[in-house]
Design a protein around this nucleic acid. Structure first.
Lengths: 238, 238
DNA sequence: CAGTGGTCTAGACCACATT
DNA sequence: ATGTGGTCTAGACCACTGT
């Protein structure tokens, strides 16, 4: 495993903040002091602190120092690019995944557009429902290019597709375009989820790319209205 | 105005990508070449490229180079921390703002919690509707601490509160916690917006902080279901 | 092999806040 | 005046990709 000093320092300080070991509204040691403590150069410390600032852990104030932000008020952002398994683990709730559809299909017009696929591309289609605290509230529809994922099994889909792709296939999931909209419920939604009387459903559309910029997955994550929650930390671009 | 080499380089390359001058899927000149071109050190070039990567303009690939991503497919993220005026300008649509409520109030229980306010804190309350293409579809409810914004006028609210805060007051809006949920429509929503038959409304809650980490604003931006759209660019686990 | 980006260093100068 | 973070430099070594 590759070690990066600045990532290690980022993690250590992040953990100290999460555990409350470093208290909100207090300042960290100065960059100079940290450089001495960790036996690195100041620029390396600065890379770690930049990561902390980007993730909402600290605020750097010129002339003063790096102030620890109150993460409780932040109720941590899960906005990025996380699999359901990782998310459920963070939430610490009982969750259950059911695979309703699983197989290889040809790209139709819709998928050709979403995935930049050609007519002869084969695509894995997976439909899964997610049950949290006894209610089926999320429907995940995944479409993965066979070109990049040659083999997929139902067992993998019951666990975590991302875990399989990253750990077993050694591919690197890198970035995604994410879009959140509200649509009318479909019969499919009503069939697989506990929709109650809701007429609409929140749809999170993801276009997911690998390391080498190839688009390999299109995903629709359909959330029951009342259970949807998206938390983000944003900085203002100056 | 302060000039930062790496920000200038970031802007220049970003503009070249936006204009199509630099084509998608081609690589930028190497960091070494760019350093020569701009007459800077390589680390400075790297800061600019890091910004480009974080904002979805390029993908850096070890051993190969920095590949220009296809921003058309990305249909520009407006996820961050932007005022409605900035957003409307980006969209290029006809928009109109109406101020329905404007005044100073005392912090009630709800606001005390949202803004960490005490009983004697005074708070500006502003309620505005936003009309786009002839339809009133967004209701913005703003609460600002008088402690940080001593004076506010109706005219400012009709233009842009952020512009006033940043340009006239010289305060720096720095970061925000953002939360997106769906709620049931209130009578207030129906009164000020063209809600049609929708039962629910998308609510974006913002807790906005200044430069010195003080929480100065709580905002609810209430969007009609069918017109809501949130686009984001996300990178996986740094 | 040469060329690329990734990490790290030791030092410099600046702008800002506090004393 | 001192200490803080912000920017920038010139160079080093590494890991990865292509030929």
């Amino acid at each position: 495993m590759k070690v990066n000093k600045f990532k290690v320092i980022f993690q250590e300080i992040a953990n100290q903040i999460k555990s409350g070991d470093l208290e909100p509204n207090k300042t960290l040691p100065s960059e100079h002091e940290l450089a001495e403590q960790y036996g690195t150069s100041r620029e390396t410390i600065r890379k770690a602190l930049t990561l902390l600032a980007q993730n909402g852990f600290i605020q750097k104030i010129k002339g003063k120092g790096s102030v620890v932000l109150d993460m409780r008020k932040m109720s941590f952002p899960v906005s990025g690019l996380v699999s359901f398994k990782e998310l459920a683990k963070n939430l610490g709730k009982a969750s259950k995944t059911r695979v309703h559809e699983f197989g290889l299909i040809k790209a139709d017009a819709f998928l050709k557009q979403q995935l930049n696929a050609s007519s002869k591309d084969e695509i894995w289609k997976v439909v899964r429902s997610r049950e949290i605290d006894g209610e089926k509230i999320i429907l995940d529809k995944d479409f993965l290019m066979k070109k990049y994922i040659p083999l997929l099994t139902k067992e993998v889909c019951e666990n975590s597709i991302y875990e399989y792709i990253e750990q077993d296939l050694g591919l690197k999931i890198s970035f995604a375009k994410k879009e959140i909209v509200v649509e009318e419920c479909t019969d499919e939604d009503r069939g697989y989820l506990d929709i109650d009387d809701f007429q609409h459903i929140v749809v999170v559309k993801n276009y997911v790319y690998l390391d080498d910029t190839s688009l390999f997955q299109y995903t629709e994550s359909r959330h029951r209205l009342d259970k949807f929650r998206f938390v983000d930390f944003a900085r203002r671009g100056h």
